[in-house]
Amino acid sequence: MAKDFYGELQLGILGGGQLGRMLIQEAINFNVNVHILDPDKNAPCRKLCNHFECGSLSDYDTVYNFGKNLDMITIEIEKVNVEALEALEEEGVIVYPQSRVIRLIQDKGLQKQFFKQNDIPTSAFQFISNAESLKTANLLIPYVQKLRKDGYDGKGVKMIRTEDDLPNAFTEPSIIEEIVDFEKEIAVIVARNDRGDIKTFPMVEMEFNPQANLVEFLISPSTYSFEIQQQAEELAKKIANDLQIVGLLAVEMFLTKSGEILVNELAPRPHNSGHQTIEGNITSQFAQHLRAIFNLPLGDTSAISNAVMINLLGEDGYEGLAKYQGVEEALAIDGVYIHLYGKKYTKPFRKMGHVCIVNPERELAISNARKVQEILKVIA
């Protein structure tokens, strides 16, 4: 694909949310024509792309007809019609990440099987077909229950702490996982092009909002030992090579209190754990994803500075037309970069934007990020 396509390539993105929006911002630099399919007529990408189509991402005919005249399709969300992508691939449309990769990652059960078959360390797990099979599960309570399909951003996950939680458990096909006694949740984003070139971004440390189960605070680069960081990055490379993926892959992991790294979940696209790369690294995750799917040389992933990313979530108790409080006050702090996603309506814990805070001094970057968290609010 690394040929004279600039300005000619017709690139389709399934999903028109914030990830698509930030991909478009990078695609403009390549002079690529971007087509977006999204079910929301007010999607953040609607006014930024060359062509916007409002339609279902899970409907075969909609996805097929959207993609049949395009050169290449990529995704910003995994919940898409894979059968349509398979048909498009057969007809010569390039789909990256490949439909087989998307199919595997759509199903958390298949993900776990993939980890087991490829000797990738992960927590103990068991398949659950219905509510009755929970009663005879081999894993002892407490454990985490995850829907095999359609879970995202903390949805589709339940903690089963005691037998009293069983009546509220999911009844659909799911997996249960041993609860990991972790010290820190970490992530590595890895990129691989069709030539097999592969590069990782430096490992990052994450903190989650306990109510929404969303990444709330991310610190890059990590200060854990070189050995731990190298182990995490090599694990991400192994997974990308085992999958033979083309594009970006986010690998979310647990670092246990004993120093073991266990892989939690995968996302075959730009990811929330890589937003800080826009200001914090030489190459952003969005530029790297495009380089990978266009089969171009991968960019330098080195960190430029200490960077902290915080998600702007809709405040609890507010729902309606979004209003942003504290923008001017937050921007008065040096090294603060605000990214608003253009979502018209807010609701509790909805991702409405993110902020990256950079500073040569790690502790100052962290303290400034805490200030921004207190200042900047999304209300209605």
Rank of each mutant, 00 (worst) to 15 (best):
H339D: 05
A84R: 03
I24F: 08
I77C: 02
V378T: 11
E216Q: 15
N209Y: 01
M1S: 14
R362Y: 00
K155F: 04
I102H: 02
T223C: 05
D181H: 07
F115S: 09
M206G: 14
D150S: 15
E90A: 15
K135I: 07
L296D: 11
S284V: 11
S220L: 11
S225H: 09
E279M: 07
L243F: 02
E207F: 01
Y96V: 08
E328D: 14
L298M: 09
L364V: 14
L139S: 03
F30P: 11
Q106V: 11
K237W: 03
I73R: 05
Q10E: 10
T162F: 05
C45L: 00
A43H: 10
V308D: 14
L331F: 02
D164V: 10
I282T: 15
F201D: 06
A330K: 03
E177G: 10
M206A: 06
N81E: 14
E252R: 10
K199V: 15
A250G: 15
L85C: 09
S302R: 15
R370F: 01
L321I: 14
E26F: 09
A191G: 13
V144W: 15
N368M: 06
I179D: 01
Y337P: 00
L266E: 00
T277V: 02
G317Q: 03
K351V: 00
I261D: 12
H35S: 13
L104P: 11
T162M: 05
G320F: 07
D59H: 13
I24S: 05
M1A: 13
D242R: 13
A365D: 04
Q230H: 13
P39K: 08
T223M: 12
L9T: 04
S367L: 07
F349Q: 04
I160M: 12
H271Y: 03
D165N: 10
E207S: 12
M253I: 01
D40K: 08
Q117D: 15
G17P: 03
D153N: 03
E205W: 01
A369K: 03
D181W: 00
L298S: 10
V63S: 08
I160K: 05
H339Q: 09
M352N: 02
